[in-house]
């Protein structure tokens, strides 16, 4: 392979004047993490609400849940980001649209909200499945004890359901991290974006992508290890979840 490797490139100054190429990549990594965390919070909040709606006996509620999930699942994430970024401001009243367009960090907020809502549909599906997997008697027992529906969910169903779906939620969180890279298309210069920028500035394609790859692998390993630890500390004695 006639390619000129230069692993020292990471310590050479980058043309934007913000330090070395490595600094560039690290700032991209931080942006990836920040975006992913905010998106994940959004995904958890909306996903929980929709997941509960899907599990309710009411026809209307489960239809709303179904429609929400189908809406966010049947469009490419990239297209959804375009809708939020390019289309929404145009469809709002002029003043609101203008305000949105001039928002500082617009790519960041759009990415976090867009990825967050996209992922919330998947969280909702997981949660509804988790609630459905609980024995029916649990809900009845909560009702029989005089708990209201809200209390039943809050104290009985959700704590168990979330423990059960911990493993799939871990991979959904990792999907959130990976999906933030799609926001490169609306100008978010996160990790993949910085690697691409480094490639364009320095022509050291494979070093740039190798570094980004290593960083993504590191995130994966850290999250998987951390979640395993969390799972163990939240595990309920005598109740086997997952494996």
């Amino acid at each position: 392979m006639n390619y000129n490797w230069n692993w020292h490139i990471f310590f050479e100054p980058n043309p934007t004047g913000s330090g070395t190429y490595l600094d560039m990549l690290v700032s991209g990594l931080w942006l990836t993490i920040k975006t992913a965390l905010l998106a994940w919070i959004i995904a958890l909040i909306f996903g929980t609400v929709i997941g509960i709606l899907r599990s309710l006996p009411s026809k209307t509620a489960s239809w709303i849940g179904f429609a929400y999930v189908e809406f966010f699942r049947n469009m490419p994430l990239l297209v959804q980001l375009f809708l939020w970024f390019f289309v929404l401001p145009e469809l709002l009243p002029r003043a609101a649209g203008l305000w949105l367009k001039q928002l500082p960090n617009a790519p960041f907020w759009t990415a976090a909200i867009g990825v967050g809502l996209f992922m919330s549909a998947r969280v909702a599906v997981q949660l509804a499945a988790g609630i459905a997997s609980l024995p029916r008697g649990q809900k009845q027992a909560a009702t029989a004890l005089g708990l209201t529906l809200t209390q039943g969910y809050r104290y009985v169903l959700l704590p168990m359901a979330f423990r059960i779906i911990m493993p799939p939620l871990t991979s959904e969180f990792l999907n959130t991290v990976k999906n933030t890279s799609v926001a490169i298309t609306i100008g978010l210069i996160e990790l993949t974006g910085q690697a691409r920028a480094m490639q364009e500035f320095s022509f050291q394609v494979f070093e740039a992508f190798t570094a980004a790859t290593v960083m993504y692998l590191a995130i994966n390993i850290i999250v998987v290890t951390g979640m395993r630890f969390l799972e163990r500390s939240l595990a309920i004695p005598g109740y086997i979840t997952g494996k």
Partner: peptide, 22 residues
Amino acid sequence: RSLPLVLVIFWFYFLVPYIGQW
């Protein structure tokens, strides 16, 4: 499965010519 698809797309876009050469 650990990597974002966008990164993989970039990887192969630059790598495939070299694989072809090889």
